[in-house]
Write a protein that binds this DNA or RNA. Structure first.
Length: 741
RNA sequence: GCCCGGGUGGUGAAAUGGUAGACACUGGGGACUUAAAAUCCCCUGACCGUUAGGUCGUACCGGUUCGAGUCCGGUCCCGGGCACCA
C-alpha cells in the first residue's frame, strides 16, 4: 500500500503516519472512552446480535441472507448480550443544529443525515393495561390525531412486558414459542420492512384513554424495541402497514379522518387513507381538520394526563462492543462487588493479549486469555475480570484526524497547540457511503471533545467533498460465493459451472472486485495514471472502472513533451510571428490557464480542465511555426505549469529542460492576462421557432438592435421568414437571435 | 420498502434555460515506411439525400417556456446507505 502510494507520487507527509491498531493510538481511544464515561455518555445495556450457532460467531447484517448464515446456511438466531454504548441519541438535536454551519458540505449528505437522525414530533400516550393495578403500555405516535381510530396495539417481540402479558393463559406456551420465533427474525431495518408482517395476539387488552375502548395487544414483528417506546398504537384506516396487518388478522377498522366532502366506509377500503382531512368520531375534535387540530389534541392529552408532547429521534445510541480481537479493548473491569469499574487512566493502555486462540467458541477471543481477563478491581482490589470485548473500529476513525495533527504527542491524545494550529480539517474527502454512519460518528465525537474542552471547534471539517465511488462488476456463485474476475468463464463459475449472478458494485475486498493502479503505473507511468484518473470523469460521480482511455492520456503527455522540445528550437530562433497566430495562441494559453486555476482552486471539475489542456496542446502544435518566439515560450511555460500539479514528474523535468534552475513547485502559477481573453468577433446563432437555422459572425460589441438588424438580413432569416414579419424576436447579444413565426 | 444520487453516441463524457455530443477511447479511411510499430491528418449519434440540406434524438410519459439534457409533476431502470463490511 505504502509502496503504491510512493510510486504514484502522492505527496503525503509520512512523518505523520499513524496506525489505529498500535497501542500508542488505541491507548488514547481508550482514554477518550474514559472521558466519555466521566461525562456520563457511556451506557451498559443488553442488545441483540445475529448469532450463528454453527459458526459460533456473531454475524453482521450483511452476512445474514434471508435469516440464514451466509457461510454455512444455518438459521441465524438473535442473542441478547450485555454491550457498551455511547449515548449518541442525546446529541440528536445538536447534530441537526450543527448542520447550519456546514455550508460547505454537499446538500445530499446533509439531507441523508437529517433523515438518519429523523426528528419527529408527536406524543407519548399511556394505555392502561386491563386487569392490572396501574400498569400501562406507553406508545409514541406522530399521529395523535388518529387516537380515536386505534383498534389494536402492536408491541415489539423484545418488549419487556411480553412474558408478563402472555403468562397464565391456557395457550401461553404456544404463544411464547411464536414470540420466540418472531424474536429470532433479526432487527436490521431492511429486514424488518421487507419481510412478511406477522404477529401474535397476547390475549390481553389495554384501554384507549381517549374513549375508554378495549384494545387488543399484539406482538408484531415490524415493531422495534430501539425505536420509540417499543410499542405502537395501530390505526389501520390511516396507516398502510396497520391496514395490511389488520386485514391479515381480521382486526376492526374505524375511520376517524374523512377526505374533504367524502365519507369513507371502512368495510369498502382497499388501502389506508393517509392524507389529511376532516376528523370524525373524535369527540370534541370531530369536524376539524386533523392537521390543524393536532396541537390542540396534544394539549388536551396533556391536560387530561393521558399523554405528553414528545420529540423522538430515529438516531440510536452507538453500540460499541464487538466480540472480536482487533480493536481497542474496552477499558472496563467487572467486579462482583463494585460492578463495572473504569480502568485508571494511568493504567492505560489495556493491551491486546498475545496468548489468544482464535477458535470460535462463541465468545470474544480475548476471553480465553487468562493473563488478559484476570485483573484486580481498580476500586476495591478484589479479583475481577476485564471486559472481553473490543471497540467498534468506527471509534478509531472518529478522531484519527486529530492524531494526524499531533502524531508524536506522547503524553496526550493530541497537543492543543497542534489542534489550534491545524484544526478543523479544511477539506475532508471521502465517499458518500460514509454519509450517515462515519460522518455522524465523526461529528458526534468532535462535539463531545469540544464540550470536554479538548478541542476548540465544534464541527470537525469545514468542507466535505464526496468523491464518486469506483465500481466494478462483481460475480457471485451460490456455492463458491464471491468470485474474482478470473474465476468466471463465460458467465459461469470456474469451479462448479453454475451460472454466476453479476452486479456492478462499489469496489470491496469482500466482493473481490478491486483493481489497483499498479498495472497502469507499470505500463504508462505514474503521471499518466494520475492524469487519467482526473480526465476520465467528474470526481464526484461514481465510475465503473475501465482503463480503455489510458492510452489517450499517455499520448497527451507525449505530445506535451514533444511540443516543449520543439518550442525550444522556436524560441531560440527568436522569430516574429503573425498577429493572428500570436493572438490565437495567447487566447488558448490564457483561457486554459484561467480554466485550470479555477478548477484547481475552486470547482474541482478536473475532467473538463484536462480536456482544455488537450486543446491547448493542439493550439501550440498548430501555431508553433507561425507564432512569435516569446508567445510560444509563454504558452509552453503556461502548459507546463498547469500540468505539473497533475503530472509532477514530467512537469519538473520539462521545467528544467525549458531552462529553469529552481523547482517548478517553488515557482508561482502564472497570472491570467485578461486582455488575451478578449475576442473581437463572435458567432451568433439564428433560430426560427427555437430551431437552429443558421449563424452569422458579428463583432463582439454588437448591440441588441444592431444584432437584430443583422440577423434579419441573414440568409437563414430570408429563407425561413419569406418576407413575412416575425411575431416575436428574442435577441441575446453574443449568443442568438430567435424568430417566432 | 424507506432515504440519497445517477441515466446523454459503440465507450468515458461536455454543455450560466440559448448551436446537444467539447475533449478522449474504439472503429473506418489516408499520409509516412521496404514493412511493422510509433507519429500525423480526415471521418465517426441515427435515418433520408449525390451534394446543398432535412427529419429524429439526452431512460419513458406529461407540463412550463420564444427556446428544456438543464426547471416542474409522474413512471421505469441502475448505484449508494439502512446502524456488526468499514
Amino acid at each position: 500500500m505504502k509502496e503504491q502510494m510512493h510510486s504514484a507520487g502522492w505527496g503525503f507527509d509520512w512523518d505523520r503516519e499513524i496506525s489505529t491498531s498500535e497501542e500508542d493510538y488505541y491507548k488514547w481511544t481508550q482514554w477518550i472512552f474514559l472521558q466519555f464515561w466521566k461525562k456520563g455518555l457511556v451506557e451498559y445495556k443488553k442488545a441483540p446480535v445475529n448469532w450463528c450457532p454453527s459458526c459460533m460467531t456473531v454475524l453482521a447484517n450483511e452476512q445474514v441472507h434471508e435469516g440464514h448464515c451466509e457461510r454455512c446456511d444455518t438459521a441465524v438466531e438473535q442473542k441478547d448480550l450485555w454491550q457498551w454504548f455511547y449515548k449518541m441519541s442525546a446529541y440528536a438535536d445538536k447534530l441537526l443544529e450543527g448542520h447550519k454551519q456546514l455550508d460547505q458540505w454537499p446538500e445530499r449528505v446533509i439531507k441523508m443525515q437529517q433523515e438518519w437522525i429523523g426528528r419527529s414530533e408527536g406524543a407519548r400516550v399511556k394505555f392502561a393495561l386491563e386487569g392490572s393495578d396501574g400498569k400501562f403500555i406507553e406508545v409514541f405516535t406522530t399521529r395523535p390525531d388518529t387516537l380515536w381510530g386505534v383498534t389494536f396495539m402492536s408491541i415489539a417481540p423484545a418488549h419487556e412486558m411480553v412474558e408478563e402479558l402472555i403468562s397464565g393463559q391456557s395457550d401461553s406456551a404456544e404463544k411464547l414459542a411464536e414470540v420466540k420465533r418472531l424474536r429470532s427474525q433479526g432487527t436490521s431495518e431492511l429486514e424488518v420492512v421487507t419481510r412478511e408482517k406477522e404477529g401474535v395476539f397476547t390475549g390481553r387488552y389495554c384501554i384507549n384513554p381517549v374513549n375508554g375502548e378495549r384494545v387488543p395487544i399484539w406482538v408484531a414483528n415490524f415493531v422495534l424495541m430501539n425505536y420509540g417506546t417499543g410499542a405502537v398504537m395501530a390505526v389501520p384506516t390511516h396507516d398502510q402497514r396497520d391496514f395490511e396487518f389488520a386485514k391479515k388478522y381480521g382486526m376492526d377498522l374505524k375511520v376517524v379522518i374523512n377526505p374533504q366532502d367524502e365519507s369513507l366506509d371502512s368495510s369498502a377500503m382497499k388501502a389506508a387513507f393517509v392524507d389529511d382531512g376532516v376528523l370524525v368520531n373524535s369527540a370534541d375534535f370531530s369536524g376539524r381538520n386533523n392537521r390543524e387540530a393536532m396541537h390542540d389534541i396534544i394539549e388536551w392529552l396533556d391536560a387530561k394526563g393521558f399523554g405528553k408532547k414528545s420529540i423522538h429521534y430515529r438516531l440510536r445510541d452507538w453500540l460499541l462492543s464487538r466480540q472480536r480481537y482487533w480493536g481497542a479493548p474496552i477499558p472496563i473491569v467487572h467486579c462482583e462487588k463494585c460492578g463495572t469499574v473504569p480502568v485508571e487512566e494511568s493504567d492505560l493502555p489495556v493491551r491486546l493479549p498475545m496468548d489468544v486462540e482464535f477458535k470460535p467458541k462463541g465468545e470474544s477471543p480475548l476471553k480465553c486469555s487468562e493473563s488478559f481477563m484476570n485483573v484486580k478491581c481498580p476500586k476495591c482490589g478484589a479479583a475481577a475480570k476485564r471486559d472481553p470485548d473490543t471497540m467498534d473500529t468506527f471509534v478509531d476513525s472518529s478522531w484519527y484526524y486529530l492524531r494526524y495533527m499531533s502524531p508524536k504527542c506522547a503524553d496526550k491524545a493530541f497537543d492543543p497547540k497542534d489542534i489550534a494550529e491545524w484544526g478543523p480539517v479544511d477539506v475532508y474527502i471521502g465517499g458518500v457511503e460514509h454519509a450517515t454512519m462515519h460522518l455522524i460518528y465523526f461529528r458526534f465525537f468532535a462535539r463531545v471533545l469540544h464540550e470536554l474542552g479538548l478541542i476548540p471547534f465544534v464541527e470537525p471539517a469545514t468542507k466535505l467533498f464526496c468523491q464518486g465511488m469506483v465500481c466494478k462488476i462483481a460475480h457471485y456463485c451460490e456455492t463458491h460465493k464471491w468470485l474474482g474476475e478470473d474465476e468466471v468463464v463465460e458467465g459461469k463459475c470456474k469451479h462448479c459451472g453454475l451460472p454466476v449472478r453479476s452486479e456492478v458494485a462499489k469496489m470491496s475486498k469482500t466482493k473481490l472486485n478491486v483493481v489497483s493502479p499498479e498495472t497502469i503505473i507499470e505500463k504508462f507511468g505514474a503521471d499518466t495514471m494520475r492524469m487519467y484518473i482526473l480526465s476520465d470523469n467528474p470526481p464526484d460521480r461514481d465510475q465503473i472502472w475501465n482503463d480503455d482511455g489510458v492510452v489517450g492520456t499517455s499520448r497527451a503527455l507525449n505530445r506535451i513533451w514533444d511540443s516543449c522540445m520543439d518550442s525550444i528550437e522556436r524560441v531560440r530562433a527568436n522569430a516574429t510571428g503573425t498577429a493572428d497566430a500570436d493572438r490565437e495562441l495567447r487566447f488558448a494559453a490564457h483561457s486554459t490557464l484561467a480554466k485550470c486555476r479555477q478548477t484547481y482552486e475552486e470547482s474541482w471539475q478536473f475532467n473538463t480542465a484536462m480536456a482544455r489542456i488537450n486543446e491547448l496542446i493542439a493550439a501550440i502544435r498548430k501555431q508553433m511555426a507561425n507564432a512569435s518566439s516569446h508567445v510560444v515560450k509563454e504558452a509552453v511555460e503556461i502548459l507546463v505549469k498547469i500540468v505539473a500539479p497533475v503530472a509532477p514528474h514530467i512537469g519538473e523535468e520539462l521545467w528544467a529542460e525549458l531552462g529553469h534552475t529552481e523547482s517548478i513547485f517553488r515557482s508561482d502559477m502564472p497570472v491570467v492576462d485578461q486582455t488575451a481573453l478578449v475576442k473581437d468577433e463572435v458567432t451568433v446563432v439564428i433560430q426560427v421557432n427555437g430551431k437552429l437555422r443558421g449563424q452569422i459572425n458579428v463583432a463582439a460589441s454588437t448591440g441588441k438592435d444592431e444584432l437584430q438588424k443583422l440577423a434579419l438580413e441573414s440568409d437563414a432569416a430570408k429563407k425561413y421568414l419569406e418576407g413575412a414579419a416575425p411575431k416575436k424576436i428574442i435577441v441575446v447579444p453574443g449568443k442568438l437571435v430567435n424568430f417566432v413565426i
